[in-house]
Simulated scan of single mutants.
Amino acid sequence: MGANTSSKPPVFDENEDVNFDHFEILRAIGKGSFGKVCIVQKNDTKKMYAMKYMNKQKCVERNEVRNVFKELQIMQGLEHPFLVNLWYSFQDEEDMFMVVDLLLGGDLRYHLQQNVRFQEDTVKLFICELAMALDYLQSQRIIHRDMKPDNILLDEHGHVHITDFNIAAVLPRETQITTMAGTKPYMAPEMFSSRREAGYSFAVDWWSLGVTAYELLRGRRPYHIRSSTSSKEIAHMFETAIVPYPSAWSQEMVSLLRKNFPYMSDVNWDAVLQKRLIPGFIPNKGRLNCDPTFELEEMILESKPLHKKKKRLAKKEKEMRKCDSSQMCLLQEHLESVQKEFIIFNREKVKRDFNKRQANLAFEQTKDPQEENGQNNNL
């Protein structure tokens, strides 16, 4: 009996929560300090996604749980053509999972490292697409705070998408943010000001976009700032440094990077939003546009990753039962708290429920009033 049914594709109830069983893991494409990113295929729809999974214990030990929860909460409320959108979030005893749009064109940092020099018209379209994404985020009261080539992914056609909302912030109305966050070479001057208590707002993302555009055009950033450069040095640099603009660049591009906008007056923004404008740089479709060493990760070599995961979880549970130290009990308490507070999300289900509500509403509005009156009289 088992042999007859094992070859059939699994049947999933559309109302059940999505979990690890619903995906086939294909290959790893990235690795962070406490998580990995891999390409997955959803078993029922055969759609491909990127799946980021973060080890709960490492998140607890590094006090990162709140950041993960905040990122999940922000991403669940966002959807835009130039963002990397969240589709599902779920968990098991070991990991937290985020399933997002799969973009195989690689990030802009990778292409810079491959010595790609982007032409001006390509960068202009990047700026337009990213500007639409930032404008949308601002309408949702979100400051990304980490705009840089590493966090901008290309799809297979060369359109850009913003990713990584790990340090994004929600800005309540009539307020400013004072906490310092971001990657120093891309952070705006107001974040280093001696009067930082005055705070900053959405403008910091637009500054980062300008630095990114300059780097894409020139291959290096406008200011020589490193992660080790002190805030005092950086503030002084902004006051004294003169940014060079190569003579080969058009005056319109230079004026745009200096925050003057006539260069964008001829843009067909509807065509940008609908991705009708063809990018000047198309990523290589013949290979993964990322570091090939990720393909050697042990996860890819496992023939049945789910089977091994279950075995590993069973072993871990046994070890937890054996150990009665106060430190282990505290860790277990934190892990149980993560389990309870984790937010499960399914964009497919959200869309399906929304469409049903809209259909019901439309049906109610198209009912013939006379027919309803006749029914009421009969009653």
Rank of each mutant, 00 (worst) to 15 (best):
158 G>M: 04
197 E>Q: 14
179 T>S: 12
177 I>S: 13
179 T>N: 04
186 Y>H: 03
194 S>W: 01
198 A>K: 14
166 N>V: 03
175 T>G: 01
168 A>H: 09
167 I>F: 00
195 R>Q: 15
165 F>Q: 06
173 R>D: 11
201 S>G: 09
185 P>V: 09
200 Y>H: 10
155 D>C: 10
190 E>I: 03
167 I>T: 03
176 Q>C: 09
167 I>D: 02
200 Y>C: 02
164 D>H: 06
156 E>L: 13
197 E>V: 13
167 I>L: 03
184 K>A: 12
175 T>S: 14
193 S>A: 15
169 A>G: 12
165 F>S: 06
186 Y>M: 06
183 T>C: 07
192 F>L: 06
189 P>F: 05
157 H>G: 09
181 A>H: 01
173 R>P: 13
200 Y>F: 10
187 M>C: 12
195 R>F: 12
155 D>M: 09
166 N>S: 15
179 T>A: 08
167 I>Q: 02
173 R>I: 13
168 A>W: 06
163 T>K: 08
194 S>P: 08
188 A>R: 05
163 T>S: 15
160 V>Y: 00
165 F>I: 07
179 T>Y: 00
160 V>K: 01
170 V>S: 11
184 K>R: 14
186 Y>E: 04
161 H>D: 10
172 P>Y: 00
182 G>N: 05
164 D>P: 07
175 T>Y: 00
192 F>E: 09
187 M>Q: 09
190 E>G: 06
188 A>H: 07
169 A>E: 12
157 H>S: 15
183 T>K: 01
196 R>S: 13
191 M>I: 13
195 R>N: 15
183 T>Q: 03
184 K>S: 11
192 F>Y: 15
195 R>A: 15
188 A>N: 09
157 H>I: 05
174 E>V: 01
199 G>P: 05
163 T>M: 14
164 D>F: 06
193 S>I: 08
175 T>F: 00
164 D>L: 09
198 A>Q: 15
166 N>C: 12
156 E>M: 12
161 H>P: 09
186 Y>P: 09
201 S>Q: 08
192 F>N: 11
163 T>Q: 09
171 L>M: 14
172 P>Q: 02
184 K>H: 10
200 Y>P: 05
157 H>N: 14
165 F>N: 07
170 V>M: 13
171 L>H: 01
197 E>I: 14
180 M>T: 07
169 A>V: 13
170 V>H: 14
162 I>P: 08
195 R>Y: 11
170 V>T: 13
182 G>S: 02
193 S>E: 10
188 A>E: 09
157 H>R: 14
174 E>N: 15
171 L>K: 11
166 N>P: 02
159 H>F: 00
177 I>G: 03
156 E>T: 13
171 L>V: 15
156 E>I: 14
179 T>H: 01
197 E>T: 13
175 T>E: 11
197 E>A: 14
202 F>S: 05
177 I>R: 11
159 H>W: 01
163 T>W: 03
161 H>W: 04
173 R>C: 06
179 T>C: 03
184 K>Y: 09
165 F>D: 08
196 R>G: 11
187 M>L: 05
167 I>H: 02
193 S>T: 11
163 T>D: 06
196 R>I: 15
187 M>N: 08
158 G>V: 04
165 F>H: 04
158 G>K: 02
192 F>P: 13
156 E>R: 12
194 S>G: 04
169 A>L: 12
190 E>K: 06
168 A>V: 10
201 S>V: 02
156 E>D: 12
161 H>N: 14
192 F>R: 11
188 A>F: 05
169 A>M: 12
193 S>P: 07
202 F>V: 07
